[in-house]
Amino acid sequence: MTVVSIVPELFTLIEFDAERIKEIASEVAKSLAFPSDVDVHIEVDEVLPAPLNSSQADYLGGRAELWFTGGAFEDTHKGRHIDEVLARCGLGEALLRVKDRISGGFEDAPNDSEISERQRALWDAYADGRLTRLEGFVVREPRRRYVYRLECGFNDVADAAYDQLWASDATTWADLLEIEARLMEADPTERDAKPSARRISLRQTQ
């Protein structure tokens, strides 16, 4: 069984229950057939509220390292409280991407802090598409599509790539780079290559 750890163990600014998040993560790992010999470490930055929603999912030193803003799990109707459906989905996306990194064709992908927003949007579409075909995950597809379009362009080439990724069960990092090149050709607008909403940038203090 997957061993899950979490930081912080006690939330002080928000009403999240660390033990419950660990339980959800274990259930999610099981339903994704996540390798049971890989430990999962979760960090939730409780300072950052919705809609400052962001996450990272890396495979470092043989361990899944997940990082989320509190907003990524926050109930949009009841601030500072967890929305378990959202949390389940966020953990599912993250663990699927770590699984991709371990042996799913993304072994050579850079860490999340190094990939661009556009690459991340492509990968998220691929992850959410698979998640939606599994039992027990409520994926908000229209939201995903908008986030994707914002990073990848509002054009037919980008939409076709989205549909391709959404329907795919076997995309690799190389495929993703090839799609990215196609998107650049369709919409050459220069985009900031530097990721904006990441663990390091969002935790810096003045």
């Binding site: 809609p51 400052l52 509190g70 914002l150």
Partner: peptide
């Protein structure tokens, strides 16, 4: 919201809504 004070201590970049800024789609 008790998070407000903590957020104000962070350097999360300009607040103006623009693509490429943190979580611009959700904002």
């Amino acid at each position: 919201d008790p998070r407000n004070r903590k957020i104000s201590e962070r350097t999360i970049g300009p607040a103006k809504l623009a693509p490429g800024r943190p979580a611009s789609a959700d904002r």
